[in-house]
Design a protein around this nucleic acid. Structure first.
Lengths: 245, 245
DNA sequence: GGCATAACTGTCGGTAGTGACAGGTTCCTA
DNA sequence: TAGGAACCTGTCACTACCGACAGTTATGCC
């Protein structure tokens, strides 16, 4: 099969080149596998709502805008299945499991996004959600055989691409994220918050005003780049920034 | 190729059966791919030393005991490369990158563990390290072509097996710890709270009402014997009850 | 058939957390 | 001596949380 050779060529590229541009990867994928469209996303679920950390796709600008603007991202049943999962998610399966979301799928069809496709969940170091969605340009009746034939190819190539993106990411993050250390008071206040104390109680304990406690917590949240006290405590405990008792 | 058909049969099993026993998976892998030995491990890198969470292998009992007793696990260069990585790790590459560990590789050869093989890192929900190590029973000169041909098969099947193990794990964990253990939903909701999500957002993500999210959080607080969501998250993170990613 | 457990939903009212506004002092270092 | 960093305080308006009330449905076990 010539298909085989094309796959191996692509594999060599993905394994040997440190940084593969998304556009190039998408172009290679499309030419190798008769893929109509691809979407790679890395969504930061730590941020308020869903902050898009990284997004590459080959859909039309208007289709993507509609998808994002309408907030479909929040209720997309494929995303729900992808979240925290490892197995590939078939769009058809998601459609069956979530009949409530039928309007979404209908809208997707109108936008030309197709209904036969697959989404591969990708692991992320932090609590983000990354995935590669693949929409092949083939007749519906050929889809099962196509999926079966190429799932392994997609799985491996998606992970190699993802690895490339993450490796590049961490280089950037290491250079900019530096000495955002918590002060003594911030640590102290965070510790009492982790112990379940309210602002008023902490203020009384430390002999400062409730307002000041809030001030320290606000600074801690900003430094940890989180939105809630709860989240700040989760991060602090994970990073061993506050004493465990 | 008959190889192809054997792979597809195995793929069908891994995709359709909820729980695939390690022994069965290993047997199928060995017969399908001429694999000499397999090792699947899930270790806790946070614990002092390495706490083994799960371990299946086809190596001889004496070889495995030597490997573990001698503490090779701690200095294994392959594990070092696997840690936090996504890309497959070739044993030969690890040997080149870590000349200091030559004694380990020599010992491995004596023990019959082989030097041509590959280790696939697998993502885990908590701060653990999981991987599948594969050692094929073929002449060294055929290894590069073999690796190239089957990497995609290994990658996909390893992930499906890993998914099966993880899904089964969570079920066991819930049932064995008795009344004080958090339910699946409580764990899930707690995890999203730790990620800074509001009740409304979590409800949207999980497809349930905001009220129900509150219900689960209330139960979680009661079981953890704490008064606030923040405190609950602190406890849960400390006890590794919720995914960290 | 009872009983327990898990998953699920609704409303009310009080309290706690959060952002944005606008200040202050002390101490150390360039 | 100017600037920065840590520490400290106040008010207003809004949102989120949390306890207590009172349910429903499904499943599995004795």
């Amino acid at each position: 099969m010539t298909d085989q050779q094309a796959f191996f060529d692509l594999l060599d590229i993905m394994e040997n080149e440190k940084l593969v541009d998304a556009k190039r990867f998408f172009a290679l994928m499309r030419s190798t596998f008769c893929i109509a469209n691809l979407l790679y996303a890395d969504v930061d679920v730590l941020a308020k709502g869903f902050a898009i950390h990284r997004l590459h796709h080959t859909f039309s600008a208007s289709a993507a805008r509609t998808y994002l603007d309408e907030g479909f991202l929040r209720i997309d049943p494929i995303l729900q299945l992808t979240m925290g999962g490892i197995r590939p998610v078939d769009w058809a399966t998601a459609r069956e499991l979530h009949p409530d979301s039928e309007p979404l799928f209908s809208a997707a069809v109108r936008l030309g996004l197709g209904v036969d496709g697959i989404t591969l969940p990708l692991p992320t170091p932090t609590r983000r959600l990354a995935f590669l969605a693949i929409h092949a340009d083939i007749p519906a009746e050929e889809w099962p055989a196509y999926r079966r034939n190429h799932l392994r190819d997609f799985q491996l190539l998606a992970y190699l691409f993802h690895a490339s993106v993450l490796e590049n990411d961490s280089r950037i993050e290491l250079s900019q994220h530096g000495a955002k250390m918590l002060t003594h008071r911030e640590t102290e206040v965070l510790g009492w918050t982790a112990a379940g104390k309210s602002y008023w109680e902490i203020g009384t304990i430390l002999g400062i005003s409730e307002r000041t406690v809030r001030f320290f917590m606000t600074n801690a949240r900003r430094k940890l780049n989180v939105v809630s006290n709860t989240q700040a405590v989760a991060q602090a405990v994970r990073r061993d920034l506050i004493p465990t008792f």
